[in-house]
Design a protein around this nucleic acid. Structure first.
Lengths: 215, 215
DNA sequence: TTATTCACTGACCAATCAGTGAATTAAAAT
DNA sequence: ATTTTAATTCACTGATTGGTCAGTGAATAA
């Protein structure tokens, strides 16, 4: 499609086309997340970016389903980058309590960020329309995060800050606590802001876990 | 509705009508859970129980949405009964490890039982179509279970079997561990059987938590 | 026996939707 | 300047949907 390979190319039209495709995907994600896949007509997606009825089928010949697949596809491609960014923000020198609180603040913000939250919403709600590979990467990513947390905790065990318990299981406890809460808040109750309740929940539970693990 | 009040009544026609309505609800639940609400036409529901096109509107004049609401309604009515049954099966005399393992086996079986699992599937997937009251009871029920577990644990603290930690938070850890796992397994991966993996997961995590809490 | 009720039928309707394709416009290549 | 190519439009189609309704015949009541 785009860049005709030869020379540098990328004419103004190429750029416009890339932009259009991006617009379509973004607008479709908004609409799917808000109203659901089946409640969003293909014409509605076109009109939401001020384009005529048929345009969607020019960029996505297989129609709405292809757009849905593309939205998921895009998310899977960024999953590792997502973990990396999340964990490079962790200050490993900080006291363990602060480190964990900040880690989970970062996770909350990552998950509830506009794009990610909407994609996850779509993924949950339209699961019956998706293939297994399109959903399981979420679980895989979550487990990758757990592994990363485990390595962070290992250092604290060697430090003497934590009892010599199984770090993988500690990490899983932390992550489950968080996952369970965000699942309730965001995906059942529909509250996206990191409000005082959630802030308190995270702190209370981290303190409790540390009470169990320290000495 | 049925029973025309006077005398005992309940003719064979009444019984048939009750049975039909039940069939419709059950079949709709199967179809909604499998293919999603919008992907199931009202005619398909009728045909799935071998009835003609118009029947659904005889029993549910407001159509598909009314069926969806009825399915959720039915589930909310049974929620307390569900907790009660779950917790009366707990053997409070057993060693704490066995008690917890059996408690979670029971929870798994309750949640993954055909009817409950399908209802929860529908509830997750069709959340955008539901009112807030129709979804939040799940969270409330879950928190009620946590409270019940907390009282079980309190006895074990008084026993001296567990360290004098915050029982509510202990219960929440247990429940989150379980919730997180069942959410991944059942609602993302689509595995309903309590297989060896899950059995091991539960045991490993209970042992780990007890290791943190005992002495 | 007769009248009435009621679960059930299936053809039908209006509306909507995904998807098409010929026509148009504008940019790019020649 | 002319041709070629890509992007965009919009009127249209065929299929499907949710929903209606006049009618049927067996079960029930009189």
């Amino acid at each position: 499609m785009a860049g005709s390979s030869r020379k540098k190319s990328l004419t103004s039209r190429d750029l416009q086309a890339i932009e259009r495709k991006k617009q379509l995907l973004e607008s479709a994600r908004d609409l799917f997340a808000e109203k659901g896949f089946h409640n969003t007509s293909s014409k509605e997606i076109n009109r939401s970016i001020g384009m005529a009825d048929g345009l969607l089928y020019y960029y996505f010949p297989e129609g709405k389903q292809q757009i849905l697949d593309s939205i998921i596809q895009e998310a899977t491609e960024y999953k590792f980058q997502l973990i990396r960014r999340l964990l490079q923000d962790v200050d490993q020198q900080a006291p363990i309590r602060d480190m964990l609180i900040n880690l989970f603040r970062g996770m909350w913000e990552t998950i509830t960020s506009d794009t990610n939250r909407k994609t996850l919403m779509i993924l949950f709600h339209e699961q019956p329309l998706l293939k297994k590979e399109q959903t399981t990467w979420v679980v895989d990513t979550f487990h990758a995060v757990i592994d990363q947390i485990a390595t962070l905790l290992e250092k604290r065990v060697l430090n003497g800050e934590l009892r010599p318990l199984n770090c993988k299981l500690m990490a899983r406890q932390l992550a489950s606590t968080f996952q369970s809460h965000i699942f309730e808040r965001v995906f059942i109750m529909g509250e996206y802001e990191l409000n005082e309740d959630s802030e308190r929940y995270i702190i209370v539970n981290i303190d409790f876990l540390l009470e169990c693990w320290q000495i």
